[in-house]
Design a protein around this nucleic acid. Structure first.
Lengths: 137, 137
DNA sequence: TTAAATCCTAGTATTCCGATAGGATTAAAA
DNA sequence: TTTTAATCCTATCGGAATACTAGGATTTAA
């Protein structure tokens, strides 16, 4: 299951991307319009800024804005920052690989190959969709 | 991330499917060979039996056996029993649907359509793989 | 009658998630 | 210069879920 953190983060990015012009958007406005706890959203925005998706302006009239155009922000990148690995098992993760404690040999693990297939199909979707794509609705 | 419960369940089913003949297989043997806590595995086997994948024989010489041939057990069925929904959001789940509290309208939610794509691609893999497929390694 | 297996219910330790608290800092506007 | 409005930052916390564990009841073969 997708965490609320990721879901809210994607909604916030979408909200910002849908605004006209490049004026900074306030957390308060996003939280209100998307029904998200403002304090929780604050910490999510911070992650997105530190990851390079968002820039911020402090003080009155400040807020957040996209640092890249929406069609340059792949869903898979955002997911990896907010959700972590795309794969369903650490042992099939490309960016967060870890051995499984219980497996003596990944090559003979029957679950392993299945989860590689799932990963590749999920990746295909997340690589091919950008922020620009998902706000087309 | 896949829960240990699901992973262990799949490994246990694979282990049983790989045995010659239809002799019941003991939890103890599975736990030992697959490095799984025996007590934990007990509860998982119980779920799999109640879901109809396994039959059991009690008492000395008892154990678990497949109730259907391995090529008749789709991965998606096992996943739904052990892991729950395939979808990453309740609002795009076919078998475990729930509204999202924060969405006034699913039709205009940008995350919704993305997660439908992910779901469909994951489903494709899990529908097309059976227990027989994943033990071919 | 004993040994070996499943069956079943409860409990528990730990981790993670979602959210909250409380201020520090910055900048525009009055 | 003061006020107001925004982000920044760290810490904490309750509840739920996960991953087991305990302990016995029941069943069956030898």
């Amino acid at each position: 299951m997708l965490s609320k953190k990721t879901k809210y983060g994607l909604k916030a990015l979408s909200y910002i991307a849908r605004q006209e012009g490049n004026e900074p958007v306030q957390i308060g406005a996003i939280a209100k319009n998307e029904n998200i706890s403002q304090k929780f959203l604050e910490s999510i925005m911070l992650s997105l800024r530190k990851a390079g998706f968002l820039g911020s302006k402090k003080g009155k009239g400040g807020g957040y804005y996209l640092r890249r155009s929406a069609d340059q922000i792949k869903m898979v990148e955002v997911m990896r920052i907010l959700e972590g690995p795309v794969a369903m098992l650490p042992c099939v993760s490309l960016n967060f690989y870890e051995r499984c404690a219980d497996c003596p040999d990944e090559g003979t693990c029957s679950v392993h190959s299945l989860m590689i297939q799932v990963r590749d199909n999920t990746l295909k979707v997340l690589e091919n969709n950008t922020l620009a794509d998902i706000i087309q609705d």
